[in-house]
Write a protein that binds this DNA or RNA. Structure first.
Lengths: 329, 329
DNA sequence: CCGGTTGCGGCAACCGGTTGCAGGCAAGCT
DNA sequence: AGCTTGCCTGCAACCGGTTGCCGCAACCGG
């Protein structure tokens, strides 16, 4: 392994000069700089990032701890961080917590001494633990807030409102929300936002029983819906998978989408844009959320009295599954 | 930031002893060891991974470079590496190449000096570039082989054979393969394997025009299929999305799955297990592939004359979408 | 009772860079 | 011409651990 000292010798300068020639070019005469650069290139030299990190105190790495990569919700967040980091040559040090608090803590400890900051996505640890962690290095949470810590959240309530406004604008008055997962905090948020938006718009919201995020759940709900189809003219499903089931089930019962009934989802997995017709959905800008988190980490205001909060807006993607209700409804 | 020297002082020993007490416990008297451990715990001390890496020469990190995280194919591979690494307290340093050769090279250079080895997933760089890289640190490719380098590949041809054998065993004789993406090397592999398996089994394979991995493509193909439905009794689609389209399209045309026609896919995205009935598919053990790659990297035989190759077998998951053909076919 | 082991702990060099400080030199100023 | 100024460069300390080697003390057997 060729070291900086070797390059320096080859270029006939001291290691300090070689170091400066490579990392602070403006501090070195042009001619010297080029001699060093040439020698480095010829010898295939790269600065050793570890050694560099040791002296400078920062590594250029950001740790990202996610619950899992199996849920399509999380990879885009990682991508967002990575992308934002690329601008400055940084990289992502990944941790997967499997939603275990112990593992999360362990990962934070492991990564802590290698990174410039930590992005915790939907962390399971308690507020106190997180705050303690934040005393040692910059920490930002995503999709969760902790008093005293900077955080990034997606404005789902705002998005739900926009989606409902879209449906109301098309003329729908009887709208159903098929929510879930049962008992989830997020679901309550969505339900509340949906109800308020629909009622403010002069409509009526039917809140169906919450279901798990699976296609069968949508199929079952479709059956249930068919009976009340003469009243409900539009359905918002909270999950793309559920929407898929709904779509299949309603079709199976002979209903047309969107002519007889409109469908929309409050997330936007790839598959949903590929149905026929494409389904209207709430695009959740997870990648931007990741990038925002990365920026917050690097601005590194550690813990402050008014930690910065970023709320990233969703975007309504109108595809073919929503249309005005049938005549006379 | 509390350093080892501080702990040592608090415990009344030298830093060397403190170091050994923490990293090589058996070299130190039990009583001393405990005194150090206690001091470390009280002061909230953690060994600085960067400094440690500098002296020991290994970091405990493995770099994983993937083309993207947006394709559901790749995250499981990363998870596999991560999981295999967890056993020894290692972590994953992630790179996303966006399928750009330049970016890939850049990432390899950046990560190279921070990791103990590199897992390149479906790399786009040429063989020569990869071999050159492998001279500097252990490199393993996944889903691609390069002469002289260790690699992990998924045995898709073997899987396709198994899937076809399953269909033949059910009694199907006229089977169609709906492949793609057009022009892909992998598709040719699958086509060849499928043809051989079906013909060996006394059946007849219809190779449909390759399509892009999208639901609409499946819908369109379904229409096409309906006309020849009296001949073909089973279809293997190369992509879950395509299968989904097929399923919708065939149902729309009044055919029942699996009573009238059997469907199967040669990959196994989450959504496919959630159709009604669940779809038979070839489970591709991406996570195991990642874990295998990680093991290879750490055995670190660098480049050798007979670099180790791991071929991970697929697993046929029989769900409800395949059944014997209708009577008399 | 003595020399030889054995076990434990400390000294100091080292990993591969970075950086504060000071010296050397040439150009600029009076 | 003499002195200041400013630009480059080198010296050496340092980042935070690890580890080869040596010394010391206790313990062993003869």
């Amino acid at each position: 392994m060729v070291r900086l000292a070797d390059v320096a010798r080859a270029a006939g300068v001291s290691t300090s000069t070689a170091s400066r020639a490579l990392s602070r070019p403006d501090m070195v005469a042009a001619e010297t700089r080029e001699r060093v650069a040439k020698a480095a290139a010829e010898m295939g030299f790269t600065l050793n990032a570890t050694a560099r990190a040791l002296t400078t105190g920062h590594t250029g790495l950001v740790g990202v701890i996610v619950p899992t990569l199996a849920n399509p919700f999380f990879p885009p967040i990682v991508t967002g961080v990575q992308e934002s980091l690329t601008e400055t040559g940084g990289n992502v040090l990944l941790g997967v917590s499997d939603r275990s608090e112990e593992r999360e803590r362990e990962l934070a400890a492991q990564l802590g001494s290698r990174v410039d900051g930590l992005v915790l996505v939907a962390p399971v640890s308690g507020d106190a633990t997180l705050r303690e962690l934040a005393e040692r290095l910059p920490v930002v949470t995503v999709d969760r807030t902790t008093p005293g810590l900077p955080g990034v959240v997606v404005d789902t309530p705002g998005g739900v409102r926009e989606l409902m406004t879209h449906l109301l604008g098309l003329g729908h008055r009887h709208i159903a929300y098929l929510g879930g997962p049962p008992g989830s905090w997020m679901d309550r948020q969505r339900t509340r936002a949906a109800r308020k938006a629909v009622e403010d718009g002069g409509g009526e919201l039917t809140v169906l029983d919450p279901v798990p995020p699976q296609v069968d759940a949508g199929l079952a709900a479709a059956e249930h819906l068919v009976r009340r189809a003469e009243r409900v003219t539009a359905v918002m499903a909270y999950s793309s998978y559920v929407l898929l089931g709904l779509l299949m089930g309603l079709r199976g019962a002979g209903l047309r989408v969107p002519e007889d009934i409109s469908l929309a989802a409050s997330d936007d997995l790839t598959v949903i844009g590929m149905t026929q017709p494409g389904s209207t959905a709430l695009h959740v800008p997870l990648q931007e959320a990741g990038a925002a988190a990365c920026r917050l980490v690097r601005e590194a205001p550690h813990a402050g009295e008014r930690p910065p909060r970023v709320r990233v807006p969703t975007r309504l993607v109108v595809r073919g599954s929503t249309a005005p209700p049938p005549e006379g409804r």
